[in-house]
Design a protein around this nucleic acid. Structure first.
Ligand SMILES: [Mn+2]
Ligand SMILES: [Mn+2]
Ligand SMILES: [Zn+2]
Ligand SMILES: [Zn+2]
Lengths: 146, 146
DNA sequence: GTGTTCTTTTGAATGAGTCAAAAGAAGGGG
DNA sequence: CCCCTTCTTTTGACTCATTCAAAAGAACAC
């Protein structure tokens, strides 16, 4: 039985090396934890990844995540009123549903295509690089509860 | 010679009363300052509005803005890596261009219409309330400089 | 005017994230 | 293998935007 990801994409150590970053147990632990728990905050990742290592500081998590984002291994999202969240799904331009009640986040595929799915009518002279779409509303649980 | 806004919309005192909020010199000063300087931060508003009053604390600005947002007089936007910004343009669903270099913000009219201009294909069971679109890129100045 | 309720001040506290310097590990060249 | 350089992690302090709580002050309905 084949494990899809190890064939399709490379392993985290390989991807770290490919990005020119050193392979350390901490980094691999953070990346695997993030893979297993998409849209985690730095603090959630710290708590979860620390459990599988002897030592891991919150700062190491912040520094690692910043490096990962800088090298395209990880995407950072910053919903209003919540600490930043991270995910390993970087290949596509997907968007997010955010629950205004409980903060839950769900992925939404890009409505139009793989690349940034919108361009403004009047760009005011800006060179537009990315379009970020966030939907706000209520998740199923909060909708039923309210 | 007619002043457009006072006829089309009501004055800030009237709009405050209509919202059930008391009319105070501080609130009016904050609203007028924000009208004159859209996309200001709380701190910028404090500095600017303080200049026309004998006293105005930063906290009063924060509290007032939260009240205004809660009553629909003001809209709050929270670009990544920047303090929250505010604007009095609440009637339409417009979007924003953010310069990744200098933080400049420009308005973009909604591509589709007045109401939330997008709905996701698969809403994952969410009750979607608003769609927020933010374009990231470089403003004219930073584009030419870079 | 007076009283009730809403606003503002005052001052402290929070939480997420950053900075800087010292200690520790990866991994390439010998 | 081992060493050295460079990158990574720890440590601990610190910043910044924002929030909290309690006391003092102002709107405005009567
Ligand atoms: Mn996602
Ligand atoms: Mn705007
Ligand atoms: Zn929810
Ligand atoms: Zn710019």
């Amino acid at each position: 039985m084949l494990v899809g990801m190890t064939l399709l994409e490379h392993s985290w150590p390989d991807r770290l090396r490919a990005a020119g970053l050193r392979v350390t147990p901490r980094r691999v632990a953070v990346l695997e934890t993030l893979d297993a728990h998409p849209h985690s905050s730095a603090d959630e990742l710290h708590t979860r990844a620390e459990a599988r290592l002897d030592h891991l500081t919150r700062q190491a998590v912040y520094i690692s995540l910043a490096d990962f984002v800088g090298h395209g291994l990880v995407r950072k999202i910053e919903p209003p009123g919540s600490p930043a969240r991270y995910e390993t799904r970087t290949a596509d331009n997907h968007h997010h549903l955010v629950c205004e009640q409980c903060g839950a986040i769900a992925d939404v595929d890009c409505a139009v295509g793989a690349a940034p799915c919108l361009t403004p009518d009047d760009d005011a002279g800006f060179f537009v690089h990315t379009a970020d779409v966030t939907y706000f509303g209520l998740c199923p649980q909060c909708r039923d509860a309210g």
